[in-house]
């Protein structure tokens, strides 16, 4: 019988060995394939980096080098801001801005948080809006739009200037400092500034007689004239009520008479209150007429 085992010098067997066959099949398994081609290098990389970073001294040195590199890039002349230019600000604001922004020039533009700086500038009462940008050449340009005061508000805290939205602009010490602006008085007057402006515009015909507006109970306005005359305006529709009073004034010279209060709070029942002297006079006239009748 021929030996069953093939001789060593036999022709090369084209068949893969059992192990090679199994390995080939394993290699064709998708999960295993991804594991070897992605997982293994990834793991080796992570492991190597982890090992290298596990030494604290090396870690610190790396951090230091990184910080130095960041610093170096920040200090490059391309990123330097050397000065500041303010546009559209009045003298006091311009003087206050460096203190508000608190930047020591030269600074790196990467370190400047323009959004935060803008918020800080806009926190100033007198500034309505601000635009910041870094101009080529390393100049920080601050464009400021200021609020325009339209009213003087006498509140418990003192005298303030208000803009057309009711926002405080600045405080003043003396009413005479801004005698050109109308006066409003009372708590909560700053929250009703648009209405006040409308009323003041409507009250134009009163001219010099107008003393100011008083906010009553934080809900409605009183128009105060000289000679202690008052026009009590309703909560809603105040300008229209005022127009009616002014119409009476122009036709009947209402306010020129001896009247203390014109009460327009109730739309359908305007009321007049006479001054004490006028009331006494009226009483006297009535008495006289009664006596005349009885005669």
């Amino acid at each position: 019988m021929q030996p069953l085992a093939a001789p060593a010098s036999a022709r090369r067997d084209p068949a893969p060995s059992r192990a090679a066959y199994r390995l080939h099949r394993l290699w064709l398994t998708p999960l295993f394939r991804t594991l070897v081609r992605v997982g293994l290098p990834g793991f080796a990389l992570a492991f190597g980096v982890g090992l290298w970073l596990s030494d604290p001294a090396r870690n610190a040195a790396l951090a230091e080098r990184l910080a130095a590199m960041v610093q170096e890039i920040r200090q490059r002349p391309e990123f330097l801001v050397r000065g500041m230019e303010v546009v559209g600000a009045s003298g006091p604001v311009q003087a206050a801005l460096p203190a508000v922004l608190d930047i020591t020039f030269p600074a790196s533009s990467l370190a400047l948080d323009l959004e935060a700086l803008r918020a800080r500038i806009e926190a100033i009462d007198v500034v309505r809006s601000a635009e910041l940008r870094i101009r080529p050449g390393g100049i920080l340009e601050v464009a400021v739009t200021e609020r325009v005061p339209v009213l003087v508000w006498r509140s418990r805290a003192g005298l303030d200037l208000l803009d057309e939205t009711g926002h405080r602009v600045a405080g003043i010490l003396d009413r005479e400092a801004r005698a050109d602006l109308p006066l409003v008085v009372g708590d909560g007057a700053d929250r009703a500034v648009p209405e006040a402006i409308a009323l003041l515009a409507a009250a134009g015909p009163l001219g010099e007689r107008l003393r100011g507006l008083v906010r009553m109970g934080e809900r409605r306005w009183d128009l105060v004239l000289d000679r202690d005359q008052r026009i009590l305006l309703p909560e809603t529709g105040a300008p229209a009520a005022l127009e009616r009073a002014l119409a009476l004034q122009s036709s009947e010279d209402l306010l020129g008479r001896d009247i203390a209060v014109v009460d327009l709070r109730l739309d359908r029942r305007p009321t007049l209150r006479l001054t004490t002297a006028a009331l006494a006079e009226l009483g006297r006239i009535r008495e006289a007429s009664l006596a005349g009748d009885s005669r």
Binding site: P14, A15, R18, Y21, H24, R25, L28, T29
Partner: peptide, 15 residues
């Protein structure tokens, strides 16, 4: 059989 199957798998690139 192993030879044939392996060659076919190799061509198909699947197991």
């Amino acid at each position: 059989i192993r030879t044939a199957v392996q060659a076919a798998q190799n061509m198909a690139r699947v197991r």
